[in-house]
Design a protein around this nucleic acid. Structure first.
Length: 977
RNA sequence: GGGCGGCUGGCUCAGUUGGUUAGAGCGGCGGAUUUACAUUCCGCAGGUCAUAGGUUCGAGUCCUAUGCCGCCCACCA
């Protein structure tokens, strides 16, 4: 196999890091070995993750990249920690979206779904789906994701469909699913009902039309304010608040619609004569109502209802019960109260939101907005329009079709979640049995459950799971006793007709954690130890659509599994709703990680229409999957929106390159007897007695970081841990340690020990970074022989910090020398001071400068002498000499750390500037000293602050005073001439 | 109308239970060098931590109010 060892000698790393070839090579390698399938070893703890199934109609976007990168990191890390990982990928059939796509194709062919019929349409849609279902998943492979491809699911797969239908049948049997004629949100474009969640409220500027209705008897006028005058033909009453003094006398009276008599084809003689006697109005009304449909249409009673807000508009509401949810309820209440007269529910719209025959000849066939204009014109001409004023209000839009929805009265299927399950769903999240990250989404989730509404789950579409309900042919469908509800249908299908509707796609997604594992069939046994799942990674925008509903379904069905403990199919008894341990076993997942939305540099949402989204595959091409993954994660704070910046992605690639080169350097220092580089071998090769100070320094830092970041990773704080490792590697390891290593000239034995320390760190770095950048680490791993031949990095466990500490201790005992580590810290401090000194005098490029230093502290002098050669190389010096403790070089540029002062052996170009700089620095030291002094002067501070803070203040004061003294001496060496 | 999140150098963000002089990356400016790596390294400039109060020996951090930006929920026709 390429990339793994053929012999024991190391293969050199190529001069340049080229992600393309090696990423492709390794992905193929993993697939061939089925490395992503769950390990068969049942002793290992299972780890399950369900990929949120992308829509088959979708294209890969930035959100997918981020989301799947996070998931991949989680599962790769779980594998490295010795867990048996099952990550199920899949796709969603996307009911409305797919149906719309296929219908468009049919339209282009001059055909339609109606003309080809249901079976042929479903066939066409299936074909289209088959062509597109794996596109996104295949694109995701380029990102290097590692789901268990062998367990791929699609929501319309036969087995998954059975799970969905079983869920429906069971919920029906338990009495939570019912059919009813109710007001629903209707999308006139898709021509289907929608759930509340699929409606988006958008602000719209329109008009408030004040329309006059005339009392049938007295001729008095009553003004109604409405935003939808086109529904006047659907009016069946006017309503006022029962307590509204202004209109009390109107209740029970009859008014004439302002449209009456205004239409050209209307028959004026049927109208009531204007001179009608008010006293007899009541009887006349009744009479005319009875004998004329015309009157029935135009004569409206004024009724009273609490729902009317007296303060809004004129306080009078026109009632169109077929086109407004509030009006519908008002009429229902009214009809419930009234034994005699019942108000009708007059529907004046077609399914596509054009007006129908009920609206009259003038309007039939018109679009609702055209009708509005025409109607306003007619009202104006008829003198019934009092005024129109601009009005800003919110209108519900269909999420998919982006058109205003119509409230529509229709026969639909609804799901009402049982209160016990709803309470349990609240509890599991409130008490962190399911942990939300970031936690603030808990409130949003709980608020939704507090106000949970019945869910309209039927859709008037053909593409989806057809509702498993059959009616006897020709019988009354409302006869519930005769209905057949089952997964497999009636045994004599020829005598039945199936419900035409399909289920909401989100209803089918609600079973994703169950159905993908084979629930409720026997097959579930195979996977039962994978439920409940561990993690869910998704966007907060589908918290209601998907997350909440999966939790509800999981708790409702309580599948019996190894990890869970529910009674399969049993109800969740209300008294158990408080039982923490039972709930713990029945949740569908334990952690939910909500990702942020990726926005463009200006903070706008990425969208196709704006064209502001980079092409994901191009990014991979440009920066490599590893670079892209690392860049993406490094800019993605937990749960916050992310402003996309391509420069940051480039940084990801730069890091991979740096890593690559650090290993090239290591390989250049290889010697012959380093064939195996197992952890054991590496530890053995560290010769503690010959370890340099630099190795003490870097190893201590490494071990400490290892411990600290492990805690962060456990808390899912990957980004923070990642930053620390990146910074350690770049700054501490490469820039500080390796440069020092290269600059010093250790003897052979010390050198061997240093290389062993490097291997110890590098090996762990590869393991640690592997979950983030799998390919480049795998490639380097293979070339460096850190594991046995043929064993991938992917299959190598990540040693814990505790384990590394323990193994070092076992082999070598406590050996880190704090004093020597401190020396290295001092070295870097002196080096920095020297660099600043050179730069500030414009001597950066000079390598022939000589430095003098003076110090009163012999330890400081010893450190400088010890690191002299490295210091000279790194700072670019020709010489570095100590001068006697009281020698200050006049007019020489200088810098002091307080303990050591450095002088350049050239005269300062600008003595005054040098003097000024010293004084500025002195002022700064004085300011800080003063600050600490002030604190110490306060007895409150001395008594109330903790001792270490007080001690810190004293120490800081001392430091600044020492530095100040030294600066004063330097100042004296620059006398005014 | 209700709720949530944010406000820290030019930009993007860190800043854990309050504690020495508020950090980083990018960008800017100035440099280095036949170097494991220019996909590199060194240095510099730049911040009254949105505003006003309060608590405290001590506030970017806690409390109250206000402002602005963003998001979610909501049947006011």
């Amino acid at each position: 196999m390429e990339g793994s060892a053929k012999d024991s000698a190391s293969e050199p790393l190529a001069k340049t890091y080229d992600p393309r070839a090696l990423e492709e090579k390794w992905y193929r390698h993993y697939l061939e070995r089925e490395s992503f399938e769950p390990d068969g070893d049942r002793a290992k703890e299972p780890f399950t993750l369900m990929m949120p199934p992308p829509n088959v109609t979708g294209v890969l976007h930035m959100g997918h990249l981020l989301n799947n990168t996070i998931q991949d990191i989680l599962v790769r890390r779980a594998r490295q920690e010795g867990q048996r990982v099952l990550w199920i990928p899949g796709t969603d059939h996307a009911g409305i979206a797919t149906q719309t796509k296929v219908e468009k194709i049919l339209t282009a062919e001059g055909s339609s779904r109606q003309s080809i019929g249901r079976d042929a349409f479903v066939q066409r849609a299936s074909e289209w789906r088959d062509q597109h279902r794996d596109i996104i998943l295949n694109q995701l492979r380029k990102l290097g994701v590692s789901p268990s491809w062998g367990h791929k699911k699609h929501t319309l797969d036969a087995d998954y469909s059975r799970s969905v239908l079983h869920g429906f049948v069971e919920l029906y049997r338990r009495g939570y699913i019912y059919r009813g004629r109710r007001m629903v949100h209707w999308c006139p474009v898709s021509q289907t009902a929608l759930s509340d969640e699929e409606v988006l409220m958008k602000p719209q500027s329109g008009f408030f039309y004040y329309v006059r209705y005339r009392d049938l008897g007295s001729g008095e006028l009553l003004t109604v304010a409405t935003t939808r005058p086109e529904t006047i033909m659907g009016d069946v009453a006017l309503a006022v608040h029962p307590g509204d003094e202004r209109y009390r006398s109107w209740i029970g009276r009859k008014v004439l619609s302002p449209l009456a008599g205004c239409l050209p084809h209307d028959e004026p003689e049927r109208l009531f004569p204007p001179e009608i006697d008010p006293a007899s109005g009541r009887e006349e009304t009744g009479e005319i109502r009875d004998r004329s449909s015309y009157a029935a249409k135009w004569v409206l009673p004024v009724i009273a209802d609490e729902a009317v807000d007296p303060k809004f508009g004129t306080g009078v509401l026109k009632i169109t019960p077929a086109h407004d949810a509030t009006d519908f309820e008002i009429v229902q209440r009214y009809n419930g109260r009234n034994e005699g007269e019942k108000l009708p529910f007059r529907d004046i719209f077609n399914p596509d939101a054009t007006l129908n025959a009920n609206a009259g000849k003038e309007f039939e066939g018109l679009d609702r907005f055209t009708a509005r204009e025409k109607l306003v014109q007619i009202l104006e001409q008829g003198g019934s329009l009092e005024k129109k004023i601009p009005h800003e209000h919110h209108v519900g839009f269909s999420e998919r079709a982006d058109v205003p929805i119509e409230p529509r009265l229709s026969e639909q299927w609804f799901l009402r979640f049982p209160q016990g399950t709803v309470e349990a769903a609240k509890k599991v999240v409130r008490d962190d049995l399911i942990r939300f990250r970031p936690a603030h989404w808990k409130k949003t989730y709980l608020h939704w459950l507090e106000h949970i509404q019945d869910w309209c789950i039927s859709r008037q579409l053909w593409w989806g799971h057809r509702i498993p309900v059959w009616y006897p042919k020709g019988a009354d469908r409302n006869d519930l006793a005769k209905m057949h509800v089952s997964v497999d249908g009636p045994p004599d299908p020829e005598n039945w007709e199936q419900d035409e509707d399909v289920l909401d796609t989100w209803f089918s997604s609600a079973f994703w954690c169950l159905g993908t594992l084979g629930w409720p069939d026997k097959e579930f046994d195979v996977y039962r130890d994978f439920y409940p799942t561990n993690e869910l990674v998704t966007g907060p925008d589908i918290i209601f659509f998907w997350v909440a509903r999966m939790i509800l379904m999981g708790l409702e069905f309580r599948p019996k599994t190894e990890r869970g403990g529910g009674q399969d199919g049993s109800k969740l008894p209300a008294e158990e709703a408080g039982e923490r341990d039972i709930l713990q076993k029945n949740i569908p997942f334990r952690n939910v990680y909500f990702t942020g939305i990726i926005r463009d540099a200006q903070g706008r949402k990425m969208s196709k229409s704006l064209g502001n989204s980079p092409e994901p595959l191009e990014l991979i091409e440009k920066y490599g999957a590893d670079g892209l993954r690392l860049g993406l994660i490094s800019i993605a704070p937990q749960g916050q929106d992310i402003l996309f910046n391509e420069d940051q992605i480039a940084q990801g690639k730069f890091f991979c390159n740096k890593l690559w080169n650090a290993f090239r350097l290591r390989q250049m220092h290889r010697n012959g007897n380093e064939n195996t580089l197992s952890l054991e071998e590496i530890i053995r090769r560290i010769d503690v007695g010959r370890m340099g100070a630099a190795e003490h320094f870097i190893l201590a830092q490494f071990l400490s970081l290892n411990r600290v970041t492990e805690v962060k990773v456990k808390g899912h704080d990957f980004q923070r841990a990642l930053w620390e490792w990146i910074s350690f590697f770049r700054h501490s390891y490469c820039d500080q340690y390796l440069e020092l290593f290269k600059a010093s000239e250790p003897d052979e034995n010390c050198r061997a020990s240093a290389l062993a320390v490097q291997d110890f760190i590098l090996r762990q770095l590869l393991l640690w970074f592997h979950a983030f950048i799998p390919f480049v680490t795998e490639e380097i791993w293979g070339l460096s022989h850190y594991g046995p031949d043929g064993v991938c990095l992917m299959n190598t466990p990540l040693p814990t910090a505790e384990e590394l500490d323990r193994r070092l201790l076992e082999q070598h005992g406590e050996f880190l020398d704090l004093k020597r580590i401190d020396e290295v810290h001092s070295y870097f401090r002196y080096l920095e001071t020297l660099r600043v000194l050179k730069t500030s005098c414009g001597q950066e490029s000079m390598r022939n400068v000589c430095i003098y230093y003076r110090t009163d502290e012999e330890t400081a002098a010893a450190i400088i002498e010890k690191f002299r050669s490295a210091l000279m190389k790194m700072a670019g010096l020709q010489d570095c000499q100590r001068v006697s403790h009281d020698a200050y070089l006049s007019y020489s540029p200088s810098r002091t750390t307080g303990e050591v002062s450095f002088f350049l052996n050239v005269a300062a170009r600008d003595v005054e500037a040098e003097r000024q700089r010293i004084i500025d620095e002195l002022a700064q030291a004085g300011k800080l000293a003063q600050l600490n002094l002030q604190k110490l002067q306060s007895s409150d501070f001395r008594t109330r602050a903790p001792q270490h803070i007080v001690a810190g203040a004293i120490e800081s004061l001392e430091l600044q005073l020492c530095k100040g003294m030294e600066l004063c001496k330097l100042l004296r060496a620059h006398p005014q001439q």
